[in-house]
Design a protein around this nucleic acid. Sequence first.
DNA 1: TATTGTTATACTCTATAACTATA
DNA 2: TATAGTTATAGAGTATAACAATA
Lengths: 163, 163
Amino acid sequence: MNVCVLMNPSNDECAAEILEVIPLVMRSIRTEMRRHRTPDLSVPQFRTLAFLRKNRGTSLSGVAEHIGITLPSASKIIDGLVLRKLATRCVSLSDRRHVALALTPLGSARLRAMRKRAKSSLTRMLQPLSAEDLVQIVSSMRRLRPVFALRTPDRAIPHRNTP
Amino acid sequence: MNVCVLMNPSNDECAAEILEVIPLVMRSIRTEMRRHRTPDLSVPQFRTLAFLRKNRGTSLSGVAEHIGITLPSASKIIDGLVLRKLATRCVSLSDRRHVALALTPLGSARLRAMRKRAKSSLTRMLQPLSAEDLVQIVSSMRRLRPVFALRTPDRAIPHRNTP
DNA sequence: TATTGTTATACTCTATAACTATA
DNA sequence: TATAGTTATAGAGTATAACAATA
């Protein structure tokens, strides 16, 4: 019966698996990030820094949309990063309503260090898996990514415009 | 090159994929749970109720260990659930230091409704995927589950005993 | 007037530290 | 003394609502 499911899972069965397993994985990631006692990066901070690295000069709206949070939330996260000298926030020259966000060298270094640590923690946890397992997982991550990457019809900027 | 990676990914590459994709999926789940304006269930509340359903009569420590949080955090989550009449907390008869936790019928119904909604939202998002994609994903979730399910050596009860 | 962001306020989740009650 | 939980306190992340500044 399990085999049967595995051979031809419905969307719904797949959804059920995701709903059980993803939070487990996420908790592991979050715990690792909180692990060390130098106050490190939270998951949202980490994701924000990663976005800034790839999109230097982006606006607050850019961050909010990409991370999937509201503007006030994004503003607060940036507050924290600026306070900790990990990012800069300047008024945009072209349109003074915009802010221009960027990583500081310190932010860049912290991001690299954190990514390295999180990755190596995951790597360690993945030890027991076989090569075939890894192929499957990588492949499915690549299939999932576009599905959940931003701007899926119907739920873009999810929190802002829903009544 | 991509193909090459796909054919023989290292733990490390797999970890990198997980680190990028899992937070995306998680955000989707969280957003869906917050979506409706009857104050619904947060992810931790949802997970706690699901644990109670499968482990009626469990103690607070049981919840904390399974969900991967500290006792005070678990206590607070249970506070909220009890306040909202979704769970009950009684002193255990066998050992009065323990509490015995259980779902109320309302909690049970709420859990079912929420699971249904979260699942159907995910199901909708998975529409664009092929049958083969689904097989891959289900299979990889089943491989990931035991890796991240609690009580992995070295990081059991992660927050409580780390100095 | 519309767009971009910030401030005010409130709630949940999370942690550590200190405490109570029971065994 | 050791174990199970709670309370106190603090901080991050999130949201909505109301506001300010700019275009």
